[in-house]
């Protein structure tokens, strides 16, 4: 799939929560083909401490409005600067990068999409794709508390949403892997994006139940193109670049101790 380096224009800036920003980007020409689970590398201007681009997953591609959405958690100075962008500003992207989540395997397949924190971001686009292509996605989303749950209305418009919060302020109290849904139902496969301990714990559940499972990793990276070999993950095939061979991996290809 062809990659581009391009200035996109900020069409809208939303703050779903004080720690997050949702950037809606657009372009004068139709946005290129992108797959759910791929990511972009954005260039951060005006921050001397931020030297490298920042890898951000694709939250949603709104073809009707020719918009690419990036849901960003404010972590350091780089992401803070991104949250200061205004409508009309330009943002330079290298995209689309990496391999996305698996395409639909068969009509009607039940796919559980598990997201934690800002890791829910790529699942919105993926859930929409699965639904549009005849699969039956189900979301299981976890957060610290109710106010950390992101884009709930958008998820609910696509498929059933189950929620856990660590403080019990919404949905079931606890972690995603403790949700009663997992005891009651079985799925054809699972896709996960979130903090590594959460992904490992879902991977353990998947392995125990014999359910195929893929996870989206976010190792620190520089080039995003498979050139610098910095973001490697140990796999059964040796060290591979998360940016190029991933970010989505089948758990059986990883060397996680699960």
């Amino acid at each position: 799939m062809k990659k581009y380096v391009k200035d996109l224009m900020v069409a809208a800036v939303e703050f779903p929560h004080e720690c997050y920003v949702l950037l809606k980007l657009t372009d004068s020409e139709p946005l290129p083909e992108m797959l759910p689970g791929q990511f972009v590398e954005v260039k951060v201007e005006g921050s001397p401490k931020t030297f490298l681009r920042r890898p951000i997953s694709i939250n949603y591609v709104d073809r009707e409005n020719n918009q690419l959405w990036l849901l960003i958690k404010k972590v350091g100075e780089g992401t803070q600067k991104l949250a200061e962008l205004k409508v009309g500003d330009k943002l330079n992207l290298v995209f689309p990068l990496g391999n996305g989540f698996s395409s639909v395997q068969e009509k009607g397949e039940k796919v559980l999409l598990v997201g934690g924190g800002v890791g829910v971001a790529p699942l919105l686009d993926y859930g929409k794709y699965l639904k549009d292509n005849g699969a039956s996605p189900v979301f299981l989303l976890g957060a610290r508390s109710k106010s950390d749950l992101l884009e709930q209305a958008l998820f609910k418009a696509i498929a059933p949403v189950y929620v856990t919060t660590e403080d019990g302020s919404e949905g079931e109290k606890g972690f995603v892997t403790q949700h009663t849904l997992l005891e009651k139902e079985r799925f054809d496969r699972i896709s996960v994006c979130g903090p590594k301990p959460m992904m490992m714990s879902v991977a353990r559940y998947a392995k125990a139940t014999g359910t195929p499972c893929e996870v989206s990793l976010e190792n620190m990276m520089a080039c995003g193109l498979g050139a610098c070999l910095c973001c490697v993950e140990k796999t059964v095939k040796g060290n591979v670049c998360v940016c190029k061979e991933g970010p989505v991996f089948d758990i059986n290809d990883l060397t996680w101790n699960i």
């Binding site: 030297f51 490298l52 620190m220 520089a222 610098c228 910095c230 973001c231 490697v232 060290n239």
Partner: peptide, 20 residues
Amino acid sequence: REGNDYPRMVEMASGMLNCV
């Protein structure tokens, strides 16, 4: 060669360090 373990890269002001 498999190279070194992750992490192999760290960013700094105006540059980076690598140990690929």
